[in-house]
Nucleic acid binder design. Structure first.
Lengths: 342, 342
DNA sequence: TTGTAAGCGTTATCAC
DNA sequence: GTGATAACGCTTACAA
């Protein structure tokens, strides 16, 4: 019979008894050892070890008003791009003794409000949100509970909210300019769904802006909005290819759509990039590495997660922090070339 | 000036006062409304709304001994395969009012012990672990605190631990048999690092077993162990190609390695699958969709996450539950063909 | 159906 | 340096 399974978990008082000190001293020895005589600390450490004592987080949180927990609210983890950020965030928090509470809302504002509430109820010390637009109720709850937070993956134009992110619009301008410089004039866009997704909207807007600067308009039939799935990418390509003249360059709202579009090119025996140039945002090194002609704007998603963690940790520790951090993006050209000559 | 930012967060007593009832009634109205007169519930709901009341999770947890929180410990989120499972798990938990606490250990047993301890200290009601082999300290802590848990992604051979997963060895046998049936006789394996990773070890073992049944041995130089990265996959392919006769089939320990290997094939102008057959485990639809010749064993990772959540939720609710669930895997053939004739 | 009050296991404020 | 002890905000017998 296993002894461990019969004995109930030890509490602070048990440790105190075994170490022959008060609970107050044990508490101090565990959180601020410098304020306790070294010999006492040692004795307490031994008692902790002997009993396999683990602090009761809820009790600790109730008394100290700190849970050492950070909440993250993202649209989804299905997209590798958010998974990377999440991983980096968790890593950095763990090193500082913080644990990550995770919630996804699947691009649904109602769900976002609910899960954010759940995190706040769990007592998160800080909150990382994705994007700059959120349901009013979310901002109100955060305000009421005075929870330090940081918006990520986009930059707050108003300058009122702390944020760490990328300039999605500028990134789109960059990719469009690159294609314009190569000589492309016939564009199409397979955009993400822009409603309720400012990142997708900013990217589309950036393309429009860059083309507009050269007096090139983007006809309605040259723009399709699709959810971020492979089959949508394939579908999107078929749709934009229907128009005449056929576009020579297709800009996709993210990597998944781009991969889908490339798959459709292959299915239609279209040579990429000779007959068609496909570009996209984010990054999917794994697919790009075996796919010629996939030019992308790469976002430093890992850095983003680490920075977000550091921002909150600094605030919680009372250290100075940046209110706004813009991370540079990188244009990764993988064999993209100019349009076919007529 | 924003009124919300000056007023402190409301507590249960505030709601009770406004609704003119005791705190006990408010508590009941919020957790077991059926035991409170409807009119009272309504009054309390209004008070909650008016004050923007959100329960204090730590206090609630301390009193009820339930945090409504589930912990997940995985190697990494960098691998899409674990991200999918995590996402599904979170989704299912959220629907039941549970929140996910996430920790990654990067294949380091020491880190695993530490982060698992952190989750237990945070008071998780249940725990999802990945794989069946864990540091003894982890199992001891779980036992001491009597925390319901479930092992995933592998099946416990001893039958002592609740688990939901796949038979990695059988999956490997399946993929090897498939290749044998196609006529392949010269095999090479780019395996994951098997030390401390039973899933990788099981897969390698499965290949050996299937080949052994046909009296085909796997020479040491035909097996390389690599971390799950693209460049390792490329490197691995170069290494196994050095031997003579050259293998006609390369089995990769997971999808990332397989994609890397495919990239190297392309770099060396090797025709896949005509000159070489590349197969792998897990799944990376995104890359496979644009890559001919990538045969894989697909694991239902989303189902795994959902099942794991359901298992724990059932136990926490006192409902009956399966102790052992084996999920079927699927062989996805994407153009893989037999070996070139000599 | 509702109220009273005793915890839940820590931390933190005092004294000593 | 250490020890009493009062919070912390909620749940839950037990009473009414």
């Amino acid at each position: 019979m296993n002894a461990g399974s019969t004995r109930r978990a030890a509490k602070l008082a048990d440790v105190a008894r075994l170490a022959r000190v008060s609970t107050a001293t044990v508490s101090r020895a565990l959180t601020v050892p410098d304020k306790v005589k070294p010999a006492t600390v040692t004795r307490i450490r031994q008692a902790v070890e002997a009993l396999g004592y683990v602090a009761h987080g809820a009790a600790r949180a109730l008394a100290s008003r700190r849970t050492h927990t950070i909440g993250l609210v993202i649209p989804t983890l299905d997209n590798a791009i958010f998974a990377n950020t999440t991983h980096a965030l968790q890593r950095t928090l763990d090193e500082a003794g913080y644990t990550l509470l995770l919630a996804c809302h699947e691009f649904d504002a109602g769900v976002e409000a609910r899960v954010t509430g759940a995190l706040i109820e769990r007592g998160v010390d800080g909150l990382v949100l994705l994007g700059t637009t959120h349901p009013p109720s979310v901002l109100r709850m955060i305000d009421t509970h005075q929870i330090p937070y940081v918006l990520t993956w986009a930059l707050d134009a108003s300058g009122r909210y702390p944020c760490i992110g990328f300039d999605n619009r500028a990134a789109a301008v960059r990719i469009a300019d690159h294609l314009l410089a190569l000589g492309h004039r016939e564009f199409a866009v397979i955009s993400g769904v822009t409603a309720g997704n400012e990142r997708a909207a900013d990217r589309l807007e950036g393309v429009r802006q860059a083309l507009g600067a050269r007096s090139i308009a983007l006809a309605p039939e040259r723009v399709v909005e699709k959810p971020y799935t492979l089959s949508s990418g394939r579908e999107g390509l078929r749709e934009v290819l229907r128009g005449t003249p056929r576009p020579t360059a297709v800009i996709c709202g993210n990597d998944v759509l781009a991969i889908g579009a490339l798959a459709e090119c292959r299915a239609q025996a279209l040579a990429v990039p000779r007959e068609l140039s496909v570009t996209g945002f984010d990054d999917l090194e794994m697919a790009a590495v075996v796919t010629p002609g996939l030019t992308t704007v790469h976002f430093p998603t890992t850095e983003l997660g680490a920075y977000a963690a550091q921002h909150l940790l600094a605030r919680l520790a009372g250290r100075p922090f940046e209110t706004r951090t813009e991370l540079p993006v990188e244009l990764v050209v993988r064999g993209s070339t100019g349009p076919p000559s007529r």
